[in-house]
Amino acid sequence: MDQNLYNYLLMLGDNSMILGHRLSELCGHGPSLETDIALTNISLDLFGQVRNIFQYAAKLNDQESSEDSIAFLRNERQHYNCILVEQPNTDFAHVILRQYLFDQFQLLQLNFLLQSKDEQLKAIAAKSIKETKYHIRFSSEWCKRLGQGTEISHNKITTALELLYPFCNEFFETTEVEKEMMERGIGPNLEELRVQYFDNVTTLLNEAGLSIPQTPFRVSGGKHGRHSEHLGYILAEFQYMQKTYPNMQW
């Protein structure tokens, strides 16, 4: 098996899966009906993308794993998502900002993957990018609305920004696996994406009337399986059924 490609797929899929789960927690709890539906729609899209990625990973692994076993039977240290996406739904401002900071990265990443040398990843990206464009429209519009809204909304998104912004650098810390993917023309050059990412983010935040925090970038390690404490709680809920009733079918 192409172990590095397999691990790369897990890295891609885990970001969408963990963020998708976080958004699903909001089902029935959104601040208004429209935002509730929008966030859970986005969650559904992210899970759709994960299924495509994990089905492909299972195929690479000669079906020794399945999309379900990949999703439900790995422990914390075997998850490779960035730490940003596991941060909690503290309030609507945190939810929106976390979403925007991820969408902006995902859009650039998928845009590269449209030209990936890996045909299946290319097809998955072509499918996913259409949805991600809707997601970023939603999250960036809301960032502006909160930033330019009332004093309360402005303060809330400022607080969220101070907490979440320092996690963004992790997207671009190239691991050995990502380096190999870049050399094989499968994955992007993350250093190039970094420049574009922070340009775009700065433009949007300025438009929203928010200033870029001066706090240094926070610890990372998610891509190596080292996470914040939040991931354990997410997995405890997410994997509950499969762990309690192994191999259960819905």
Binding site: E34, T35, I37, A38, N41, I42, L44, D45, E131, Y134, R137, F138
Partner: peptide, 13 residues
């Protein structure tokens, strides 16, 4: 438009 995300992924309200 009330919401760009509607009752299913393919629809807006």
């Amino acid at each position: 438009v009330i919401s760009a995300f509607g009752s299913t992924a393919c629809k807006a309200l």
